[in-house]
Simulated assay, not measured.
Amino acid sequence: MARKGNKSGILAGLLAGAAAGVILGMLYAPEEGKKTRKKIRKKAEDLKDQASEKYKQAKEKAIDHYNDYSDKTKSKVDDLVSSVKDTYDKYKDKVKDKASSVAKDVESELDNLK
């Protein structure tokens, strides 16, 4: 599976290559300089808009993934906390009873030693 950084690098390279190709094509086209500059400016604005839209889409996708993982992580932590509390409640009384029993046995043994 390709890394996300590679995909954005490839996309940026493709956009830069396309822009360079368009600009070179326009510079060598047999048109008046004013028209060529106007075309280059228009194409640059179009490419800027496309790049801006791609950035916006990538940002929204990243935020969606973050929120999804955040929600999943919160759910897992809540489940874990609930499990720990349930286990604590389950064994709390047993431990208290055993501790009381041990304390009574110790007191009894101490009384026998007197």
Rank of each mutant, 00 (worst) to 15 (best):
K7Y: 10
I23W: 01
A12E: 15
L47M: 12
K39L: 11
A18E: 13
L14Q: 14
Q50N: 13
Q50I: 15
K56Y: 11
Y28T: 05
K42V: 12
L14E: 15
I23K: 06
A20C: 09
L14K: 10
K48M: 04
A44D: 10
A20Y: 14
L47K: 02
K39M: 09
S52C: 02
D46N: 13
L15F: 07
G33V: 15
Y28G: 02
L11K: 08
A20N: 15
S8E: 13
M26F: 11
E53K: 13
L14D: 14
A12S: 06
G25R: 06
K43E: 12
K34M: 05
K54P: 00
A29G: 03
A16V: 10
L11C: 03
K7G: 01
S52E: 15
A51L: 11
K35Q: 06
K54F: 00
I10N: 12
I40Q: 04
A51I: 05
R37W: 07
V22R: 01
A12Q: 08
R41Q: 05
Q50K: 12
L47D: 01
G9S: 05
K39Q: 12
G13H: 03
K39E: 08
Q57E: 15
P30T: 06
L47P: 00
V22G: 01
D46G: 09
K43P: 00
L11R: 10
P30I: 05
I10T: 14
L24R: 05
D46L: 08
L14C: 02
G33W: 07
K39V: 04
K56E: 15
M26A: 09
S8W: 03
K39I: 02
A44T: 15
E45S: 04
G17Q: 12
K38V: 06
A51F: 04
K56H: 14
A18W: 06
K48V: 04
A12Y: 06
L15H: 05
E45T: 10
K34Y: 06
L27K: 08
L47I: 08
K54D: 02
M26T: 12
K54A: 01
L11A: 05
R37H: 02
E53C: 02
I23V: 14
T36P: 00
K54Y: 01
K34C: 01
M26Q: 14
K38N: 08
G13D: 11
A29C: 03
P30K: 01
A20P: 03
D46R: 10
I10C: 03
A16H: 08
A19E: 15
G21I: 04
K7E: 14
R37P: 00
A19Q: 12
P30F: 01
K54L: 02
K35H: 05
K39T: 04
L14Y: 09
A19P: 00
G33Y: 06
Q57W: 05
Y55W: 10
P30E: 13
D49M: 06
Y55A: 10
K48A: 05
Q57N: 11
G17M: 08
A29L: 09
G17V: 07
L47G: 04
I10M: 08
G9H: 03
V22E: 07
K39S: 05
I10F: 09
K34P: 00
A44P: 05
A51G: 07
K43W: 07
L15C: 03
K48D: 13
A12K: 09
P30S: 02
A29Q: 03
A19K: 14
Q57D: 15
G21A: 07
